[in-house]
Amino acid sequence: MIAIINTGCANINSVRFAFERLGVTPEIISDPSQLNGFERAILPGVGHANVAMKRLEEQGWREAIEQYERPLMGICLGMQLLCDYSEEGKIEGLGVINGQVTQLQTGKLTSPHMGWNTIQTVKQHPLTAGIVPDDQVYFVHSFAHTVNSSTLAQCEYGQPFSAIVANDNYAGMQFHPEKSAKVGAKLLNNFMQWQV
């Protein structure tokens, strides 16, 4: 059983449909007390970090997520909220994944970083099983996790940044696996198989 956490800050239908294509029917939950009833969970997110973090706090998700001991993965903004700190809104995150989220220094490149880009595996991990250097995934973001010891895979757009991160039972993908075709489906399937 997989839960998709609904904080009102994401289009959760595309995530739900991606799992359904894998033969899994997730349940969308809006009450933190429901979380422990699931074997794994997804925290999606779009929009501004300050607004999303405020909703998480107000709805009581911080404690539920911090105490969750099974696989939990953030997607896009959801990943950033799992980290220590975000420059966007200058907010303290949930702190379950080590690292800072900073504004991408894109130079002459367009911001936000939007579209397909290649990811490079930094560490072998069950989440990156079967991913090869030419694999591409779909990004939409202007802030990103700085590459550090939590980084499993990275990407470059003006600068290197973390594409996949993990710490203990928590993980995050900066891109949208639900919009990343066969590679995204492989990554979601890896998440479903991940044992912690």
Rank of each mutant, 00 (worst) to 15 (best):
I75S: 00
M79R: 01
I2E: 12
W194A: 12
S30F: 00
H145Q: 13
P177Q: 12
Q80H: 01
G130A: 13
G23Q: 10
T151M: 04
A52N: 05
A52K: 07
S30L: 14
V15H: 02
E88T: 11
Q193F: 07
V140P: 14
A144V: 12
G93R: 02
G107Q: 08
V140A: 06
A10L: 00
N148Y: 15
I5D: 01
Y138Q: 11
G74E: 02
K186D: 09
N36E: 15
P133D: 08
P126Q: 02
L22C: 10
Q174M: 08
K123C: 03
V132C: 10
A153C: 12
P177F: 01
Q67T: 10
A153M: 13
K54D: 09
L104F: 11
F38S: 04
Y170M: 02
E87P: 04
M1C: 09
I97V: 01
V140R: 12
I5L: 03
S180K: 10
L43Y: 00
L43G: 00
L127P: 04
G8T: 06
C9G: 00
G37K: 14
Y138T: 07
D84T: 11
F143C: 09
N117P: 06
N167E: 15
C76G: 11
Q154A: 10
S150I: 15
A153R: 09
K123M: 13
K90L: 04
E87W: 11
H141Y: 12
E20V: 06
V132M: 13
F143N: 08
F17P: 11
N167C: 12
S150K: 00
H113K: 09
A129Y: 06
M114L: 05
A52H: 04
P26L: 01
L104C: 10
H48Y: 13
Q174Y: 04
Y85H: 07
N98P: 02
R40I: 11
G89E: 10
N167M: 13
F17L: 12
A49N: 03
L82R: 03
V51Q: 06
G158Q: 11
L152H: 03
K54P: 03
F19E: 01
P71G: 05
K108F: 06
I2N: 02
V96T: 08
N117L: 13
I28P: 02
M192R: 10
V196C: 13
N167H: 13
E92F: 10
N117Y: 08
G107Y: 14
T106N: 04
T25S: 14
W194F: 01
L94W: 13
P133G: 13
P112H: 05
Q154E: 09
A3K: 14
L187F: 08
Q103R: 12
M1L: 05
W194Q: 12
V165Q: 13
I131C: 09
F17T: 12
G93K: 04
C9E: 05
E58P: 01
E57T: 10
C76D: 01
L22P: 12
I12L: 11
L82M: 05
P126E: 08
